[in-house]
Design a protein around this nucleic acid. Structure first.
Lengths: 167, 167
DNA sequence: AAAAAAAGTTAGGCATACCTTACTTTCACG
DNA sequence: CGTGAAAGTAAGGTATGCCTAACTTTTTTT
């Protein structure tokens, strides 16, 4: 049991941002963290001290910042949550990328492991189950604008779907 | 445009709780609010003063608490979000009620209007589209345990689905 | 290598949102 | 009707998380 439930949303965000900066530039600089987080440089220092004290980053004043193994683990977990939520909102709910990303960002902290696993499963299921799939998501998009179509259209849709799986 | 985005998550929770207490008992008492929120009685007073000052509740020290029209509107909005999320996590993702409720509670503050509307649409779509529906959710549940079934099972599933819509 | 610019830190402030303890009001019942 | 328990409030404390302004360190530029 990784006891990181103690991390605040804000600190989770910091870890996520540090990970993404590490990926992009090998190390994270306070200025870039501030920029990505939308906070001022001064606000970053305190957060870094906090994370360092929790053993999640390597931090020496006036030097570069990297994640520890423990920090990396958490950052990956958050990033994964973010990614799945993004996929759900963008690919399944068909929200535009920007909005999907922003809502993923806000929800990622509220998802527990089990709910997350279910959501992952659901995204996979929609991708793999012949009754769902990409074209089904497109149907959903149409549904959002016009509601359910004529019965014949539905019958047709299902007939095609049926045919496809018999190949 | 109802400018209540300024409300903190905590205050949104207070409104939601007050609404549910009003429904149950016509008025909300500070003690019950404290109990439902899982905070101490003393913490409630400050929140109530804050809400009163924002014009969202009728509040006189030592007397009962009711929502103003503005407060009612927000409380209903939050409650609606909660309900939809609950439905999604319980009926579609098939999480048990308790967990679905707790995750709904945590996510409800992060949902914006548009994402909410999409999710509402999706829940409706899953209920109405012949390719989805209750039995499809059951398939999902099986998928969670065992993954996608044999091809023949899928073909069979779709054949039945097809037959149903031709009735 | 010195000065200027950029990056980072520190210190002090503010708002939220809890807590606890002590005090006040209300209400119910004897 | 008056008193004690329950409900409510007030005051003061803690932690988070942001801000600004002033200061220090580092890096760049000439």
């Amino acid at each position: 049991m990784t006891e990181y439930s103690a991390l605040s949303e804000s600190l989770e965000d910091y870890l996520e941002v540090i990970l993404s900066l590490e990926k992009a530039s090998r190390v994270a600089r306070a200025k870039d963290i501030a920029e990505k987080m939308g906070v001022k440089r001064g606000s970053v220092t305190g957060a870094l001290q906090n994370l360092a004290q929790k053993g999640l980053i390597h931090y020496e004043p006036y030097s570069f910042i990297t994640l520890t193994e423990a920090g990396k683990k958490i950052a990956h977990e958050i990033t994964r949550r973010h990614g799945i939520l993004l996929e759900f909102f963008a690919d399944i709910l068909r929200l535009d990328l920007k909005r999907a990303d922003s809502v993923a960002c806000r929800l990622e902290h509220g998802m527990d492991r089990e709910s997350m696993d279910r959501l992952i499963g659901f995204v996979q299921f929609v991708n793999q189950c012949p009754r769902a799939g990409k074209d089904w998501s497109t149907r959903f998009q149409e549904f959002c604008g016009k509601g359910l179509p004529e019965k014949e259209v539905c019958q047709d849709c299902l007939a095609q779907c049926h045919a496809r799986v018999q190949e």
